[in-house]
Simulated scan of single mutants.
Amino acid sequence: MKTLVLLALCSLTVICVTSGAATGPQPAGDNPPQEGLFVEREQASTVVRQKRAAGELSLTQLESLREVCEANMACEDMMDTSGIIAAYTAYYGPIPF
């Protein structure tokens, strides 16, 4: 039991030393202050994942939409006439992926 406690304390010490937590707070000049939560539109568009167009769905994704739509008889009928994407969107809303 003593060995386990000693091993845990040694592990905690190593983690603190390697992460820099044991050195204390960093001077304010090293890290510029955060300006806020708002970013420019161009920068945000590179970070946020863009929605995929309906034609770019994989076969697996189309099959999962088809399975959901087959559970509803009206959706299944519309799927046969208008297509899976139109039927799913009409009955279940926007495509989740």
Score class of each variant (00 low, 15 high):
Gly93His: 11
Thr89Lys: 12
Ile84Pro: 02
Glu76Trp: 05
Met79Lys: 07
Glu76His: 12
Met78Gln: 07
Ala90His: 10
Glu67Asp: 12
Arg66Val: 03
Ala86Pro: 07
Leu65Ser: 05
Met79Pro: 01
Gly93Phe: 04
Ile85Gly: 01
Tyr88Leu: 00
Ser82Asn: 13
Arg66Glu: 10
Ile95Pro: 00
Glu67Ser: 10
Ser82Lys: 14
Pro96Asp: 14
Ile84Asn: 06
Met73Arg: 15
Ile95Cys: 03
Gly83Arg: 05
Thr81Met: 12
Glu70Ile: 08
Glu70Gly: 03
Cys69Ser: 12
Ala74Gln: 13
Pro94Gly: 15
Glu70Asn: 09
Ile95Ser: 03
Asp77Glu: 10
Glu67Ala: 12
Met78Pro: 01
Thr81Val: 10
Arg66Asp: 09
Ala71Ile: 06
Gly93Asn: 13
Val68Trp: 11
Tyr91Asp: 11
Glu70Lys: 11
Glu76Cys: 09
Met78Glu: 10
Pro96Lys: 15
Glu67Cys: 06
Asp77Arg: 08
Ala71Asp: 07
Ala90Leu: 04
Val68Met: 14
Cys69Tyr: 11
Thr89Ile: 03
Ile84Met: 11
Ala87Thr: 03
Thr89Tyr: 04
Gly93Arg: 06
Ile85Asn: 06
Cys69Asn: 10
Ile85Leu: 11
Gly83Asn: 05
Val68Glu: 15
Glu76Met: 10
Thr89Pro: 02
Ile95Tyr: 08
Ala74Thr: 06
Cys75His: 05
Asp77Val: 00
Ser82Ala: 12
Pro94Ser: 15
Ser82Arg: 14
Ala71Tyr: 09
Tyr92Phe: 12
Pro94Gln: 15
Gly83Gln: 12
Thr81Pro: 00
Ile84Leu: 09
Tyr92Gln: 11
Ala86Gln: 12
Glu70Asp: 14
Asn72Asp: 14
Met79Arg: 09
Gly83Ala: 06
Asp77Ile: 02
Tyr88Met: 07
Ala87Tyr: 00
Met78Asn: 07
Leu65Pro: 03
Ile85Asp: 08
Glu67Pro: 00
Glu76Ile: 00
Arg66Lys: 12
Pro96Met: 09
Asp80Ala: 01
Pro96Ile: 14
Asp77Ser: 08
Met73Leu: 13
Ile85Ser: 04
Pro94Met: 15
Asn72Cys: 06
Ile85Cys: 02
Pro96Phe: 13
Ser82Gly: 04
Asn72Ala: 08
Tyr91Arg: 13
Tyr92Trp: 09
Ala74Lys: 11
Ala71Gly: 13
Thr89Gln: 13
Tyr91Val: 02
Val68Ser: 15
Asp77Cys: 04
Arg66Pro: 01
Thr89Gly: 00
Met78Arg: 09
Ile85Ala: 03
Tyr88Gly: 01
Glu67His: 13
Ala74His: 07
Leu65Asp: 04
Met78Ile: 02
Glu76Tyr: 12
Gly93Val: 01
Ala71Val: 07
Ser82Ile: 00
Ile84Val: 10
Met79Asp: 00
Met73Lys: 15
Ala86Phe: 06
Ser82Pro: 04
Thr89Met: 03
Ala90Val: 03
Gly93Thr: 08
Ala87Val: 01
Met79Ala: 10
Glu76Pro: 01
Val68Tyr: 14
Glu67Arg: 15
Cys69Ala: 13
Leu65Trp: 01
